[in-house]
Simulated assay, not measured.
Amino acid sequence: MAPKKVVANSEQTENPQAKSGGDTKSERVIAVSAAEGYTGSALLELLASDQFKDGYAKLVGLTFGEPKEDTKAILEETGVETMMVDKVDENKLKELGVDTLCLIPPASKEKMELVKHVLELGKKAKSVQNMVLVSSAGADYAERDKQPRLREFIDLEVLAMQPKSDPSTGDTGHSPCIVRAGFYMENLLLYSKQAQGEGQLPIPIDPDHKFAPVALGDVALLLATILVSKGPHGLGDEVRGQLIVCTGPQLVAGPELAEAASQALGTKLEFSSVTEAQAKKILGSEGEELDDDSLVRDGKTNYVASPPAFKMVTGQDLTLPTDWFQSYQDSFKRKKRRTTK
């Protein structure tokens, strides 16, 4: 499920520890894919802000397809240069001076081939020193026959790590980092109509299944901080060569998530356990892949990972579910029905 955009909170935007580069502007050139997606556009928006703009010399968005209206508006507001991946070759990467690539796989069934293509461009250019891949938490627990789209992220991780030990690729991939992002809180926005109209939060899990959803703004903050970090070999030593799992800070079951929403909204919101088929009907085309939910149902997400690491890298605490629902209260507060006199 595609997460929606989220804006960093005021605490994050004032975070001095997330800045890099000191008083001089960095010469780093950062390219981000998939810029047309929610994660990519949120990351570019944050990188273009005052908080991070001194951490690089140029910012480029690589797209695998046309952005939707909301992400298109974000990209236009940031003023970031974007270009289709199929119109970029290794010579263009060199011309742009790209030395840092944040590779966010697109929400597509063809993500393996598309990511392979970008990695090959980087290998041929031999100059993309810093390689940050956004993977998925729980991908190592996914089964190929049961959660195939999720398991593909492990294959992508292998591909992203290969240049490190391949001298023929030059500097490309010499300074890597993999971030496994957890289940996005923003996925819950897909159920906002049910929340507003029926006071229900329908999720295809049982009441006792637990997971630790993470705010998209937190993932964007972590990625941005990594991308502008600096060390003697490229990325900062605290993140270079790391595999960072980024879940939310709190393990919750469906009813606990609904309770957190109720506290934040000041109105009752109840958890509703639905089947995968019912969820797909509610979500329409956006519910084609429910691998994340399948992991939750299998009991493979009963852990919280990253609060200490997240704070060490960003200087911030992860967003609690109650705070997240508070920031999105207009999307979840139940609308009162009109009555005729």
Rank of each mutant, 00 (worst) to 15 (best):
L243D: 06
S327I: 06
E286S: 10
V134R: 04
P67K: 10
T225N: 09
L156S: 03
Y191K: 07
K53S: 15
N130V: 03
Y38W: 14
G236R: 04
S135L: 08
S272M: 01
T247N: 02
L46Y: 15
N15S: 15
K116E: 14
T339I: 10
G97P: 02
V80T: 11
A160T: 08
I282Y: 08
M84D: 10
L43F: 14
A181F: 07
I244L: 14
A139K: 00
T100C: 13
D292P: 02
V6Q: 15
A35F: 15
V228W: 02
C102T: 08
Q12D: 11
T82Q: 09
F52A: 10
H117F: 09
L114D: 13
L269T: 03
F271I: 02
E286N: 12
S26L: 05
D293C: 04
G65L: 03
L190Q: 10
L318I: 14
T340L: 11
V228R: 12
T247M: 00
D166K: 06
A220N: 13
A261V: 02
V296P: 02
E66H: 12
E152T: 04
D89E: 03
E77L: 08
V252E: 00
Q17P: 01
A224D: 07
H117S: 10
K268V: 09
D323C: 07
D54I: 12
K25P: 03
L133V: 13
N302D: 13
D140W: 03
F325K: 04
F183K: 00
L75N: 14
S285H: 08
G173C: 04
T71D: 11
L46G: 07
Y38H: 15
K164T: 10
H117I: 00
L159Q: 09
E198R: 07
S10F: 03
L62G: 09
D323R: 09
N187H: 01
D145M: 00
F153S: 03
T267Q: 15
A220G: 04
P255R: 11
